[in-house]
Design a binder for these strands. Structure first.
Lengths: 227, 227
DNA sequence: ATAGCCGGGTGGTGA
DNA sequence: TCACCACCCGGCTAT
C-alpha cells in the first residue's frame, strides 16, 4: 500500500525564504509551484506569509483587504502568518488602534486565522506541525472523557472505564463497581439490572444500554478520510 | 446624550489590571461583575486574557484545555488575548512545536480567535476597538451568551469508551469495534475472542480480560480518605 | 484536544 | 515452532 506522502506546495517566490529547505530537513516533501493565491498550500489549507513590516504598511494601502477578499472566496481555510517583530513596527504607528481594528476585521469578519512567528524557522515549524496534523488520521473531538490513569492502580482503571459511560461520574462509577463487583459485570448488565442492582435511574440505565448495544459504524468524517 | 452606552462587563478579578481604568478613560462604560468564565464580555463576545507566561506553562499542565473545553461549549464567539512577551517565554521551551500545535488546535479545531498584545495598554486598545465595532453595527440584539450546542456522536462515545481500556488507543479501538460490532460485545468477550475476533495480540487480550474481571476494591488511598 | 520519545507488543520472516 | 527483528502503537513527559 502506497503511503500517503506528507507534502506541501510552496510558491516559487518562496524559494529564497529558506523555509522550503527547513521543511525538507524535517522530512516533508516540498513541491515548488506557481500559486495564484497564498504562499503555501497544505491540503485544504492555504497559507499566506507576510513580514511584519509588509503587514503593517499594507494596513493603510488597503491592498491587504483586496487580497484577503479574493482569498476568502477561494479557500475555506486560510491562514495568515505574520513573520517578524510586530511590536517594533507597531510602536512606530501614530494610531495603533488601526492595527487592532484590522486584526479584528480579518479575524471576525473574514474568519482569517492569524499567527505570529518571529522568524523563518518558526514559520517553518508552524507549517511543519500543520502538515503533520493534516495528514494524521485522528478521531475528531471526543466526548468529555476522564483521562486514562497515569500508571495507576487497578481500581483507578476500573473507575476510569466506568466513568467513560455517559452520565456516569466518579460517584456513580464507584457505586456501580461496589454493587456489581467488576467492570465486566457492569458492561454485561441489562437495563433492568443496571437500574436495580446498580442503583441508578431508569433514564441513565436506558441511555447506557442503548450505547452499549449500538452497532458501530464509522462516522462521516472518518469515512471520508479513509477514502 | 441618550445614545446607547458602549459597555463592557469585566470580571471583578480584572479590577487591578488597570485595563478597566484605561477603557473608562476612553469613554467606555465598564461594569464590574463576577463572571463564571472569561474576563471580559462585550455583547456576544467573551474575552479571556492570559499572560504569555501563563499561556505557555498551561500548555503542559492541560489547564488550558480544561478551560478551553468549558468555554467552547458555552460561548459562540470567544476571543483569547495573550498578553506579554510571547517570544521570550517560547524561547525557553524544549519543544517549540508543541506551542504551534496547541495554537493550531485552538484556532482550527476549537475555532478560537487568538490575539497577541504586548501589555495592558494594547489589550485595552483591542477591547476598545472591539467594543466600538460591536456597537457600531447594532444588528438585531443578540443574546449575551450564545450557546453552542455540540454533542458527540454515538461512534465518538463508543471509541472513547473502548479507548479507556489499557493499551488500547485510537487505532486498536477502531479495530475492536469494527470487528466485534458493539461496545458490549467487546466487554463481553473472552480473552480468546478478543485476540482472535478482535484482532489484537494475546498479551493485550490477557491484560484487558484480567482488568475486566478484577473484583473491585477501593484502593489504599481511598480507604484512608473514607476512614 | 500537543509533540517527541521510548518501551513493549505484534506479526512476519527464515531457519 | 521458535527466535529474531522491524514496525506499530499507546502512554509518559515536558517547564
Amino acid at each position: 500500500m502506497a503511503m500517503t506522502r506528507i507534502g506541501i506546495v510552496a510558491d516559487t517566490r518562496e524559494a529564497t525564504s529558506g523555509i522550503p529547505g527547513l521543511l525538507r530537513k524535517g522530512g516533508i516533501a516540498v513541491e515548488m509551484k506557481r500559486l495564484d493565491v497564498g504562499d503555501y498550500v497544505i491540503a485544504q489549507y492555504a497559507v499566506e506569509r507576510k513580514t511584519a513590516r509588509d503587514f503593517i504598511t499594507s494596513l493603510y494601502t488597503g491592498r491587504l483587504f483586496d487580497q484577503a477578499d479574493r482569498i476568502a472566496k477561494s479557500y475555506k481555510n486560510f491562514l495568515l502568518v505574520v513573520e517578524g517583530e510586530t511590536q517594533e513596527t507597531l510602536a512606530g504607528l501614530k494610531n495603533p488602534r488601526v492595527y487592532w481594528g484590522t486584526i479584528l476585521a480579518l479575524a471576525l469578519n473574514l474568519d482569517f486565522k492569524i499567527f505570529f512567528t518571529f522568524d523563518q524557522e518558526q514559520t517553518a515549524d508552524l507549517l511543519y506541525v500543520l502538515a503533520k496534523r493534516v495528514y494524521r488520521r485522528r478521531t475528531a473531538t471526543k466526548p468529555l472523557l476522564a483521562r486514562k490513569p497515569r500508571m495507576g492502580t487497578t481500581s483507578d482503571w476500573q473507575l476510569a472505564i466506568v466513568e467513560g459511560l455517559p452520565t456516569i461520574g466518579p460517584k456513580l462509577a464507584e457505586r456501580l463497581l461496589a454493587s456489581l463487583g467488576s467492570v465486566r459485570n457492569i458492561f454485561r448488565a441489562s437495563r433492568l439490572e443496571l437500574a436495580l442492582m446498580g442503583r441508578i435511574g431508569h433514564a441513565r440505565a436506558k441511555q447506557i444500554q442503548e450505547l452499549l448495544d449500538a452497532r458501530y459504524r464509522r462516522d462521516i468524517s472518518e469515512q471520508a478520510r479513509l477514502g
